[in-house]
């Protein structure tokens, strides 16, 4: 038996919005410690890994490990039927070919139930090696989204260059070129606007904007995004999954990490 309840169903909606264009089908692995998902896009250029901690749920029970393969586009459709303030419960019985989704409205007298068919997916799991990254940039998620969107007007790829003075995002195309430079800054009043750069050695790497623009669909999950880079390894774009409660308290319940293979000169 598997049962997981989130008090703020909107978090699940945001997670699905963040991944369902990149991957259409994937398997959730459920264990006593939480739920996780790993999947590559169809061209195998990027990989998304979602992790939700069991203790981030208001109720979490997983008697034995389960793999719930499903069509994420369909799951997303069903989650659209839940109100943003609904409590959402996911239930799966051992050996069943479907999961149940239960939405409880805040008024406490309206309950909706949906079922979604499970699929047997031949998932390929990749081992992600422990890496210590040369450069880590923590910046406002909305700023990163804006930069990727703007530079995609200029070209298909962005070169991220990091030096002592800051980080540069630049693109070149038929019409010309463009760049956005950010230097480290911190504000006591608005920590969500901070740009934090940690660098061991200067670095410059190029990535396809098509994928980065897909990753920024996770922007509503968290005010800050972390980019981790090292020469000749995939870029990591990480968003924490933050549940905002009624009292405005923020609770980190997991993360989404996107890995993007670089473009490398022949």
């Amino acid at each position: 038996m598997f049962e997981a309840k989130l008090d703020r169903g909107i978090v699940l909606k945001k997670i699905l919005d963040a991944i369902n264009q990149l991957v259409n089908e994937a398997s959730w692995e459920c264990t006593s410690s939480g739920m996780s998902l790993q999947a590559m896009d169809t061209s195998h250029v990027s990989l998304v890994a979602v992790n939700l901690n069991g203790d981030g749920f208001s109720k979490f029970r997983c008697d034995r490990n389960m793999v719930l393969g499903m069509n994420l586009v369909n799951l997303s459709k069903i989650l659209k039927c839940a109100g943003n303030d609904d409590k959402v419960t996911i239930k799966a019985a051992d050996g069943d070919d479907k999961i149940k989704l239960i939405f409880e409205a805040p008024n406490e007298y309206e309950v909706s139930q949906y079922e979604i068919k499970l699929m047997n997916l031949d998932a390929e799991y990749l081992g992600i090696p422990e890496t210590s990254y040369n450069v880590t940039v923590k910046m406002p998620a909305a700023k990163f989204q804006r930069i990727c969107r703007d530079l995609n007007q200029i070209g298909d790829a962005v070169t991220i260059s990091c030096t002592k003075s800051g980080v540069d995002f630049s693109a070149t195309g038929d019409l010309g070129n463009g760049s956005v430079s950010l230097s480290q800054n911190s504000s006591f009043d608005k920590p969500e606007d901070n740009v934090t750069i940690s660098m061991q050695e200067p670095l410059s790497q190029t990535f396809a904007l098509k994928y980065l623009n897909q990753f920024t669909k996770a922007t509503p999950l968290c005010s800050q995004v972390t980019l981790s880079l090292s020469p000749d390894v995939p870029l990591v774009v990480e968003y924490k999954i933050i549940e905002e409660n009624e009292e405005d308290s923020k609770n980190e319940i997991g993360h989404i990490r996107y890995y993007l293979a670089p473009k490398i000169d022949d």
């Binding site: 590559m40 061209s43 195998h44 250029v45 990027s46 990989l47 390929e124 799991y125 990749l126 081992g127 992600i128 090696p129 790829a157 190029t206 396809a208 390894v233 995939p234 890995y259 993007l260 293979a261 670089p262 473009k263 490398i264 000169d265 022949d266």
Partner: peptide
């Protein structure tokens, strides 16, 4: 000319 690598060039299948 830069070439797009795939993720499986870096991460091995389990």
């Amino acid at each position: 000319m830069s070439k797009q690598k795939t993720i499986t060039n870096f991460f091995k299948r389990k």
